[in-house]
């Protein structure tokens, strides 16, 4: 789905950290994270819950298919109003199919920074899924505990202009090498989104956070939680099919 979410999914699947990890430079940290993030193929069943003040939570269920860093496809299966809505992202292009219009539409680039399906995630969070090492310069700024777990604290500065989050701050779990907390910042340095990752589960030789909470601080008191129900490192559909307009139109 969104870039950040995919980064988290990727970052979540890390090998245990070697003892000498504390001596790594910032760039080497990012390289290690990137190396562990790169999944060839992945199918994820997830539930997205949008928590709003004074209103009941809104729950959406979806299946996410992804390949590498620039191919992703999402199909919503609940609630009934959104059922059958499909997104396809290939590189910087994003399309949507809505059952109500029975039509595939390309989403314009500027839309990518808007809220997706009313959540705290934006469309661009999924589209901009570049390597952290390629996109950012990193500096290790200290060590802190987050939720009782020792972390390295990294400050990231974008190497490129015109990105959604020119600065990021990561709290990288020393054992798992997973960012378990992130602050995503605007050019002014103002934190505009906060992310927490938790409920780490072991899948094969990988540790995966199965709960991701994002808070868009420009909204009032909302948060969006993604609970990963099932993660498989394979595609349940042919990759030629699922990352194509053909899949958008037929959905299977």
């Amino acid at each position: 789905m969104k870039r950040t979410f995919m980064v988290f999914l990727g970052a979540a699947v890390l090998f245990a950290v070697p003892a000498r990890i504390h001596s790594l430079t910032g760039t080497e940290f990012l390289k290690k994270i990137d190396a562990n993030m790169l999944y060839e193929k992945r199918t994820t069943v997830a539930a997205m819950t949008i928590n709003r003040p004074n209103r009941s939570a809104k729950v959406m269920e979806m299946v996410i298919y992804s390949k590498g860093l620039d191919h992703a496809a999402i199909e919503f299966s609940a609630p009934a109003r959104e059922k059958g809505t499909r997104f396809l992202k290939i590189e910087d292009n994003l399309w949507i199919y809505m059952p109500s219009t029975e039509k595939v539409m390309k989403i314009s680039g500027h839309m990518l920074r808007q809220s997706m399906m009313g959540s705290d995630f934006s469309y661009e969070d999924s589209v901009r899924n570049e390597s952290l090492e390629e996109l950012f310069r990193a500096e290790i700024v200290g060590e802190e505990e987050v939720a009782g777990r020792p972390c390295h604290v990294l400050k990231l500065e974008s190497k490129k202009q015109d990105v959604s989050y020119p600065y990021m701050k990561l709290w990288v779990d020393k054992e798992w090498m997973i960012p378990i907390k992130e602050e995503l910042m605007a050019l002014s340095g103002k934190v505009i989104k906060e992310v927490e990752l938790g409920e780490v589960k072991q899948l094969g030789d990988r540790n995966i956070p199965t709960r991701i909470i994002m808070r868009d601080l420009l909204r009032k008191d909302t948060s969006t939680e993604i609970q990963l129900k099932d993660v498989r490192f394979e595609l349940e559909l042919s990759e030629d099919l699922v990352f194509s307009r053909r899949w958008l139109e037929r959905g299977r």
Partner: peptide, 9 residues
């Protein structure tokens, strides 16, 4: 034709 170049067109 539908595309994007800063704005959608």
């Amino acid at each position: 034709i539908k595309g994007q170049f800063e704005i959608g067109y």
